[in-house]
Nucleic acid binder design. Structure first.
Lengths: 113, 113
DNA sequence: ATATTATATCAGTATATAATGATATAATGA
DNA sequence: TCATTATATCATTATATACTGATATAATAT
């Protein structure tokens, strides 16, 4: 096994995963599984603030996970690719099996009572 | 669409994705695609420091993405599930298609020259 | 024209976490 | 025993980023 440190592609892949790596963004993606939604609808569906949703949507769009389309004063967002849903489904399944070990993901062991 | 904010499961799912959302951890996972490795081998394969690798391995284990087995003074790590590889493959593919838009994933638009 | 609605952006704060260097632990070998 | 090797942990620092509240922009409606 030869030595290669972190090439560009790993940075990109990490950024892609980062798009999924936040509960607020996941709730947005989850809402969008039902189809295209305007920002206000996403705000209602998730319970997040408008500002927060807008920031997360920018992130998701920059990550390539969603696409947006303007119609008048509305911006409609949707999942960009079937594989985004596939990733959500796959991790849902995976979680069902390994959830036992995912309580904590810090470098410190779970030291609760 | 009714209102539900962020249930436990979204937190867990986010943590799972977080395991993948770092270039150093991805390089470790990538190394492990070839099969079980001891920590020192991972250090060599990735070029990361021993301490750093050890911290990331703890994270990956806590996230349920890898499992470890002790043999004498060696700890052997391996991917915990075929679906971990599946997720890596799926995002590889997805990246190939949408990479154009993943240059940046900050809330600020890419404002380069 | 003015008000309202939909969305985006900004500045500031708080928190999370990646990396480092040092040290601890524990197994093996001389 | 003592040295070496393999790994884990600790404390610290620096950076990234999630969130908030305020404001800006722009489209529509009255």
């Amino acid at each position: 096994m030869l030595i290669t440190s972190k090439p560009e592609s790993l940075e990109l892949q990490a950024k892609l995963f980062r798009g999924f790596a936040d509960p607020s963004r996941l709730s947005i993606l989850e809402a969008l599984r039902g189809g295209e939604l305007a920002v206000t609808e996403i705000v209602q569906a998730t319970g997040l603030t408008q500002s927060n949703v807008s920031n997360h949507l920018s992130c998701l769009r920059d990550c390539g996970l969603v696409t947006s389309e303007q119609q008048g004063r509305f911006s409609y967002y949707q999942l960009s690719d079937q594989r985004v849903e596939d990733l959500l489904s796959l991790t849902d399944e995976l979680l069902a099996d390994v959830a036992k070990g995912v309580y904590e993901c810090t470098r410190y062991e779970a030291k609760e009572a």
